[in-house]
Write a protein that binds this DNA or RNA. Sequence first.
DNA 1: CAATTTTTGTACTCTTTCGCATATAATGGT
DNA 2: ACCATTATATGCGAAAGAGTACAAAAATTG
Lengths: 215, 215
Amino acid sequence: MVQKVLRQAAKAASRRRGRPRAFEPETALAQAMEVFWKDGFAATSLDDVSAATGLNRPSLYGAFGDKRALYLQAYGQYRKRMNESFAPLFAAREPLRTKLRRILTAALDLYLGGPHGPRGCFTVLSAASDAIADPDLHSLVGEAIDGTDRAFGRMFSDARAAGELSAAADPRRLARMASATIHTLSIRARARIPRAEILPIIDDAVTTICGAESA
Amino acid sequence: MVQKVLRQAAKAASRRRGRPRAFEPETALAQAMEVFWKDGFAATSLDDVSAATGLNRPSLYGAFGDKRALYLQAYGQYRKRMNESFAPLFAAREPLRTKLRRILTAALDLYLGGPHGPRGCFTVLSAASDAIADPDLHSLVGEAIDGTDRAFGRMFSDARAAGELSAAADPRRLARMASATIHTLSIRARARIPRAEILPIIDDAVTTICGAESA
DNA sequence: CAATTTTTGTACTCTTTCGCATATAATGGT
DNA sequence: ACCATTATATGCGAAAGAGTACAAAAATTG
């Protein structure tokens, strides 16, 4: 009994007991994410995921559980990756105007540039899905939206402290407008509206939030 | 042959030939719309639609065609109804501020108050769906988004002409920000965020677009 | 009333899909 | 070398889902 506990504790460090996995769960999850992101939960079959990952269904079950659990983990990885890739953009020491433009442009590129065409934001897709009825997904999506609001909120709050925004500006209001921009970018990208017609919205948001171009 | 053509031409006016329908297509379409709106295209089975309408599947096929055609017609009816119910709000002779607030509030109520709980905007859902790959749906959704931009655009343009907005205001930019607000309301409603947490966004948008409250 | 036309309801076929049972393969422990 | 353990691959089984065939029902036309 004690032995077993010790062995389990060492699992991460030393090699697992039986036959080793022939794949990296992280990679498989990233591939599963792609197909779910493209077609959504209901329209994606486990055979689609199987084909995308190169794994048989039993391997998927063994590693991640059933379809729902797999989706939740794929979406979890999406959130983690988004946080990692956008954190430096939010932390950058740049003029507010430039920073906001960079963030929105990065989001649009991400939404338009999927390996299978325009796809929008996975969070927005998950919210639209029937799977949003699931309380777990429901929480994750709520956290994601809130997290975006907060990230923008901190950015505008810092900018105001640095004198880049008027003292009367409300960081939380501006943050929600920035999130709204993210959402409209996602929807228009997914609707396959051409990039050239979406791009002006980034200018709209920068102008609306930071004021008209002064230079 | 000529007889047949004449008969078909008179079809709309005089009674149809064989056994009459036991249902109104408009009503059935409205009921189909509800279920598609709730769960999306892929997660809604024809049995679900059959249950919601009280019609057998062969009747659905006879009246509307296959599942895809049915969805397109249900979505078409949604668009028609939205245009009808929002047109008077856009046309109202009210202060811009009041009008914008009324429109956004009506949208939020619609998104939150489905017979089966929060549901968001059907256009946003359709864009998120896998069915967006269908060129026909794709066009309909594009038109819907564009139509909203234009409706807001006219409103702001008129308001500027009436002196309710500064001469420097760009109606198209403001229109896209208003549409973005509609989109974020839809997403947050669908994500089951409580009404009280969504409501401030309407204030945000009114303030951002019309300027800070003067009175 | 008989013939024709259209709708309705039952039941059917064919395909897809999820989840799992079972057998085989590959590793660590003793 | 042998056992315990974990992963892989084939394939099964039950269920759901889309679309349709067919006969009965309900209307119009002559």
